[in-house]
Design a binder for these strands. Structure first.
Length: 922
RNA sequence: GGGUGGUUAGCUCAGUUGGUAGAGCGACGGCCUUACAAGCCGUAGGUCACAGGUUCGACCCCUGUACCACCCACCA
């Protein structure tokens, strides 16, 4: 084996082999276990969030696969309507073209072509992460089968009266020229103004002052509302105002909605351009006056002077014109929530259009019940509150989008306005006996992408056909997803799946936080703090990293800032850490539901961990290769205390790792494994094996037992680690499997270790604890006294009991080697001891003679430190014991424990004081 | 305006039915000891945000406060 672990050399090799051999496919037997991948956008490239999510899913899948489950990880990508269309449009833009230049059909062809060329990007990156989904079943939300499912779903919902077409206010994106759902609108606080305008009364008897943040909408005003209880304006209710600039008369109405205390207490009502005003308009039968076109420019319903004017230009103009008329009362600074499209970033306009809607309430009822009854459980639990609060107040869902890329709505219109919904024009003509001379035109719109992803868990398994896969794997086991798409996706999957399948889509939703940078900032292109998982795996030089981070950056000052910041953070670029180290970092950070700050410092530690495992293997092979390690299962071997101890610890580690994975606590699982491998196996066990293996006089049976334990514990540990670090475990497993008496083509297909509690040897654990305590005590003296590690020490043991004596006799070789001892002398009471530094192990004293090695004052200082520590401790305990109520009320065992501890410390203190006196006298 | 989560070592985070506060990284000191310098050995470092309460005993349970983050909501 190479001396240093090199991830590059092993990873792709094993991945190709696994995939080629079909190891990712369901095994066909065992309990079904299924995870549906949250389909990444085809346009996408892998980001840290994906990396995290895939790492979690892959660990679960590999774990279950090794436990014998019939495991399906269903993979696929999402057509991502708006996102993908925007990407391709941007490409066209580079050639000076728009999608309208191409026309719908050609444009869609172009998108498909683009998908063909670049759509595989993200799935290739997934492979680099070691993800093991069944690629042979890969799906796309617009492949034929899935499109059929989408159509079927639409038709059924329509037939059942749960999809309807309506003319309402929608969130209109004037740049993308489409309606979007409430969820796609992000309202952010922005600094704006509150303009106060005077609207004259029609009878010339005065005016009312209204306050508005959007002056341009005043041309669409249908009324001014006041609170019916507002004494200032009561006498004006029912009168009319003359709307300035538009010269229309509008009524003054009364409505409870108006807040007396805000602004002037008079609200201008624009039913066609504001959601609240729309409702009020409905209540008061106000006319709807639409004054905007699809670009949010003013249309022909406004006075000629403003027609065709862009909305913000119009705002300025109207303010200026009203001011000129003396109708601008005042302008105040005002913070307001501005709605922006999550894709385009432009201000969204409430706009009156015809759209398709899903009635959400009836679907939500069952979806709520499913979580209430724990048919679906969220991990962590608190996300259920978020889910409930949204679900209980759910609004109808606008599902039509004025895009070209997506599932075309299966609705056709006759010239008389009749709407037919069906599988195809032919179907519809047949079903409704529509003659050929009546023309039918299909709806131009496509469906919201989330409509199709809502069908993901069953659509990918063949629905609407009742396939064997559907029967086997649905409901799926767990959904691994970010909290940010609970409403977009999780909630809708639950609603749709309950409706169409009559069962839940998954039993558990594991919700993880957002992956942020090391400062806790969101990773974003514009901040230039994005980390690419692939760069962490393969490494990247500084220069390409900078150009990558600043690519397509329009503003030069941002460019410079990002470059500077990148140079500061990664002066040498990013090292190649390998997939296993990256994955391990994700697991270690995956604690309960909080956001994850990804610090590159962490990943280095786990690369070192991989190297540690690598080198431990080298040690094991050096000592076991070509030797009898009991690979034939012969039983002519004997286990040492150390062997029995590490086997015990292995069982405990197996329990802890399984418990961690079972509870989605990958941080705990990875921590337990790390501690076992590094602290138990490497730091102690490998060292404890040396005195046996390197001792020519040691019995063959003992040596064989040690070799056997070395290799078998390593082999089991690799299986234990495999779900978390697939590559290095496979590489090493292949090298050692024969020596360990294992057979098989891949560690992937081996059984996950099952803890055998009968192998936990409490006596061995206690004995090794004693050995460790003695060694640590001596090392402490050595370290504190600056005695070179090379100098072998003579030590004396004083005041030991028979148990200490036994342990000493049985473990002399361990102590000698690990603490580098020269001689160990057992003192019986009355034996004289040389002047020594003293450490305690229980009541037993370990003496390290000072002669020539230890400075008097240094030892006095060391003793003082120890004494101080013990004193503090003792005071605490005595405080408790002196408290009568503690003694009276605390459980007897707690009191006894404190008493014992106090006694122990008192004895120790006596000894130390004694020791101090003696040394002081030297 | 409602709601959720967080506040523990310099940094990032654990803390298991309330009973002596832990890890990794970083820091400091010593080591090229035949698996590993991507390493080994040792050491230091914490009024567990603050204020009350319950309890013999609180990082943990209850109440309140502050700050941070996020979610939801129609104040023009």
């Amino acid at each position: 084996m190479e001396k240093t672990y090199d991830p590059q050399a092993i990873e792709t090799h094993w991945y190709e082999l696994w995939e080629k051999n079909g190891y990712f496919k369901p095994s066909g037997s065992g309990e079904p276990y299924c995870i549906m991948i949250p389909p990444p956008n085809v346009t996408g490239s892998l980001h840290m969030g994906h990396g995290f999510q895939e790492a979690i899913m892959d660990a679960l899948i590999r774990y279950q696969r090794m436990r014998g489950s019939n495991t399906l990880w269903q993979v696929g990508t999402d057509h991502a309507g708006i996102a993908t269309q925007m990407v391709v449009e941007r490409q066209l833009e580079a050639d000076g073209l728009t999608r309208h230049d191409l026309g719908r059909e050609q444009f869609i062809q172009k998108v498909w072509q683009w998908k063909q060329e670049s759509g595989g990007n993200i799935t290739q990156q997934l492979r680099r992460l070691g993800a093991s989904p069944d690629w042979s079943r890969e799906r796309f939300t617009m492949d034929d089968g899935f499109s059929q499912a989408v159509q079927e779903a639409f038709i059924r919902l329509h037939e059942d009266g749960l999809i309807y077409r309506g003319k309402r206010l929608v969130n209109w994106d004037p740049q993308l020229h489409t309606a979007i759902s409430d969820l796609e609108v992000i309202a952010e606080e922005e600094q704006g103004h509150l303009w106060h305008f005077r609207y004259p009364l029609a009878d010339g008897s005065g005016h009312l002052t209204v306050a508005t943040t959007r002056p341009e909408t005043m041309l669409g005003d249908s009324a001014v509302a006041v609170n019916p209880g507002d004494e200032r304006y009561q006498h004006l209710i029912g009168k009319t105002l003359l709307l300035p600039l538009a010269d229309r008369e509008i009524p003054i109405i009364a409505d409870d909605y108006v807040d007396v205390a805000f602004g002037t207490g008079c609200v201008k009502i624009t039913p066609a351009h504001d959601f609240n005003d729309y409702d009020m308009g409905q209540r008061h039968q106000l006319p709807l006056l639409n004054i905007l076109d699809r670009d949010a420019k003013l249309n022909d319903n406004v006075p000629p002077a403003y027609r065709g004017m862009e909305r913000f230009q119009a705002r300025k103009q109207i303010v200026a014109d009203l001011d000129a008329l003396g109708l601008l009362d005042k302008v105040m600074d005002h913070q307001l929530k501005v709605p922006r499209g999550d894709r385009s970033g432009v201000v969204i306009e409430p706009w009156l259009t015809d759209q398709w809607y899903v009635s959400a309430k009836p679907l939500a009822e069952k979806a709520i019940a499913a979580v209430e009854t724990n048919a679906i459980q969220f991990v962590p639990k608190q996300y259920e509150n978020m889910y409930f609060s949204w679900m209980r107040d759910i609004q109808d869902w606008c599902i039509s989008r004025q895009l070209w890329w997506g599932h075309r709505i299966p609705a056709w219109y006759a010239e008389d306005g009749t709407i037919y919904v069906g599988r195809s024009e032919q179907d519809i003509r047949g079903k409704h006996a529509i003659p050929e001379d009546i023309s039918l035109v299909q709806d131009e719109d496509v469906l919201d992408t989330w409509f199709s992803s809502g069908l993901w868990t069953f659509g990918t398994l063949g629905w609407p056909q009742n396939t064997p896969e559907l029967k086997m794997f649905h409901p799926t086991s767990v959904l691994v997803t970010g909290f940010d798409i609970i409403f977009f996706w999780v909630a809708r999957m639950i609603m749709f799946t309950l409706y169409f399948m009559g069962e839940v889509p998954f039993r558990t939703v594991y919700v993880h936080g957002l992956v942020r940078d090391s400062h806790g900032d969101k990773m974003s292109k514009s901040k230039g703090n994005v980390l690419d998982p692939i760069d962490l795996i393969d490494g990247i030089e500084l220069t390409p990293l900078i150009s990558k981070r600043t690519a397509g950056m329009m503003q030069p000052h941002l460019r410079d800032k990002i470059e500077k910041q990148t140079r500061a953070e990664f002066p040498d670029g990013i090292a190649a850490y390998g997939t296993d180290a990256l994955r391990y970092t994700y697991y270690s950070l995956a604690s309960t539901g909080r956001d994850i700050k990804f610090d590159v410092g962490r990943i280095g530690g786990f690369r070192n961990f991989c190297n540690k495992i690598w080198n431990a293997t080298r040690y094991v092979l050096m000592n076991a290769e070509d030797q009898d390690c009991g690979q034939d299962d012969s039983d002519d071997y004997q286990l040492t205390l150390a062997d029995r101890w590490i086997i015990s610890r292995l069982q405990e580690a197996e329990q802890a790792v399984a418990a961690g994975i079972d509870s989605y606590r990958f941080d705990l699982a990875s921590q337990a494994l790390y501690d076992f491998i590094w602290s138990d196996y490497c730091d102690w066990y490998l060292e404890l094996s040396k005195p046996v293996l390197w001792d020519d006089n040691a019995p063959q049976a003992l040596k064989k037992g040690t070799r056997r334990t070395l290799i078998r514990v390593l082999e089991a540990t690799l299986r234990l680690a495999h779900p978390l670090m697939p590559f290095i475990t496979e590489e090493i497993w292949q090298k050692i499997k024969t020596l360990a008496g294992a057979e098989g083509d891949s560690i992937m297909l081996q059984a996950f270790p099952k803890p055998q509690t009968e192998k936990i040897d409490a006596a061995a654990v206690a004995d090794i604890e004693w050995v460790k305590q003695v060694i640590l005590a001596i090392r402490n003296v050595r370290g504190e006294m600056n005695i070179p590690p090379k100098t072998p020490l003579p030590i004396f043991i004083k005041n030991g009991n028979p148990e200490d004596r036994r342990r000493l006799d049985e473990n002399r070789q361990f102590l000698t080697r690990l603490a580098n001892l020269d001689t160990v002398t057992w003192l019986t009471p009355g034996d004289a001891a040389p002047a020594s530094a003293t450490a305690l192990a229980g009541n037993m004293e370990i003496l390290v003679p000072m002669a020539g090695l230890i400075d008097k004052s240094a030892e006095l200082a060391r003793l003082d430190k120890e004494i101080n520590k013990l004193h503090k401790n003792l005071q605490q305990i005595q405080g408790k014991l002196n408290n009568e109520r503690f003694v009276a009320n605390a459980p007897a065992d707690v009191v006894a424990k404190e008493r014992a501890r106090a006694e122990e410390i008192e004895t120790a203190l006596e000894k130390m004081d004694d020791q101090k006196k003696r040394i002081a006298e030297l």
